[in-house]
Amino acid sequence: MIKVEQLTKRFTPEKGLFDLNFDVKKGEVFGYIGPNGAGKSTTIRHLMGFMKPDTGESSINGLNCWNKSSDVQKLVGYLPGEIVFLEGMTGLRFLTLLQNMRKQTDTKKRDELIERFQLDVKTPIRKMSKGMKQKVGIIAAFMHEPEVLILDEPTSGLDPLMQRVFIDLILEEKQKNKTILMSSHSFQEIERTCDSAGMIKDGRLVALEDMHSLRSVQRRVFDVKVKNEIDVDIILQSSLQAEVTGKNSIHVTVQGNDQDFVQLLSQCEVEHLDTRPQDLEDIFMHYYDRRDVAR
C-alpha cells in the first residue's frame, strides 16, 4: 500500500535521506523509529507530497506521492509532527472546515472521537494545551475514515490514559484492515501496536524487521534492590549480565531470557524492582551487535 523505493533527498552530504526502501502492506501497522533528526518526518513529508525527492520515489496505493499528491490525499489521514492549526478558530470550527473541504457530511465518527478523547471542542485553538491540540490533530486524521493513516509521533503530549485510548484506537483501525504508518522515538509505543518496524538513523534505514524479531533483540535493564549481600552474590553468580551500582542495588540486563530472570529473583528477597526505559540508541547498538555475532 505504501511503497518507498530508493528515496533520496540530500540537504547536505550528511543530512537528508539516502536510498530509503520499504514497503507497508495493506492492513499492516508499520512503526517508524529513530532518534530526533534521523529523517522520520522528512520521509513522511515525501509521502504527503510536500517534498520532491532528488531520486527514487514513494507511492501510496500505486499513486506517486509527488505527482498525484491531491489524489493521494483522498486516501490518507495525516497527523503532522508539529501541530499548528489555523488561527482564530475553535477546535470544532477547524474540524468542520476540514470536513467541508473533504466534502464529508457525516459527523458520526468525528463526534465519537471527540467523545472518546474527551475533548472540549469549543475551546479556541490558541488557548489549547499541547495535549488538546494533539487530540484535535488525531481526530482530524481519523474522522474521515481514511484507508491509510500517516501519523508523525502521535502520542506526544498525551497523558498515559489518553495514550491508551489512542493505542486502542490504532488496534481498532487495524481490525478494519487500515494501513498505518506511525513514527515514534519510543520503542514501547511501537511495540504495542505494530506488525513491523523500520529503524532509521542519519537518513538511512538501518533495520527493517517484523516486530517479533525486534522484540527478541530488545534488551531491558532492571534496577533491582535486594535485602542483603547474599542476594547480591546470588545474582552476580548467575548467568545473567549484572552490574552492582550501589549498596544492595544491581542492574540486571535481560534479553530474551526473562524466564531465568524471574527464577533468579525468586531466590532473593527483592525490596524494589524497576525497569529503565530503553533508549533507542541502545536498541540500535545492540541490534547491530547481535547481527554481527550471528554472522
Binding site: M48, G49, F50, S69, S70, D71, Q73, K74, V76, Y78, P80, E82, I83, V84, F85, L86, E87, L98, M101, R102, A140
Partner: peptide
C-alpha cells in the same frame, strides 16, 4: 505564515491541490 507555522499541512492534506 501558514507554511512557517505549519498549518498549511492541514490544508494540503485535503484533496485540494496546491
Amino acid at each position: 505564515r501558514l507554511v512557517d507555522q505549519g498549518s498549511m499541512a492541514y490544508l494540503l492534506a485535503t484533496p485540494f491541490s496546491r
